[in-house]
């Protein structure tokens, strides 16, 4: 799963981070980091729940078919230690 991060809409509610801190990382001010996110298969439920919790609609699940084939250059961030 691929999550589009609309960074300009993020207002630092940090609801995504509260639900899935390993998937959604925050900067020192508490706003989501810039850059879209590839989610590992096992984390998809958690990640989509976090997306639906964003009061600003700053996160979006990319459902286009292209998004399913992740470019090799993008390293998955989900499940990081």
């Amino acid at each position: 799963m691929h999550i589009v991060v609309h960074k300009a809409k993020c207002q630092g509610h940090a609801r995504c981070w509260a639900q899935a801190p390993n998937i959604f990382k925050l900067d020192d001010e508490g706003y989501v980091l810039l850059g879209d996110i590839n989610v590992a298969q096992g984390d998809e439920l958690l990640a989509s729940r976090a997306v639906r919790s964003c009061p600003e609609s700053a996160l979006e699940i990319d459902r286009t078919s292209a998004a399913r084939f992740e470019p090799a250059a993008m390293q998955p961030r989900a499940g990081e230690a």
């Binding site: 207002q11 630092g12 509610h13 729940r49 919790s53 964003c54 009061p55 600003e56």
Partner: peptide, 20 residues
Amino acid sequence: REDNRHAAFGYGPHRCLGSH
């Protein structure tokens, strides 16, 4: 209730600074 994107702390750039 899941997926609870409530407005208690407002929306937009003035989102409650003390919300956390």
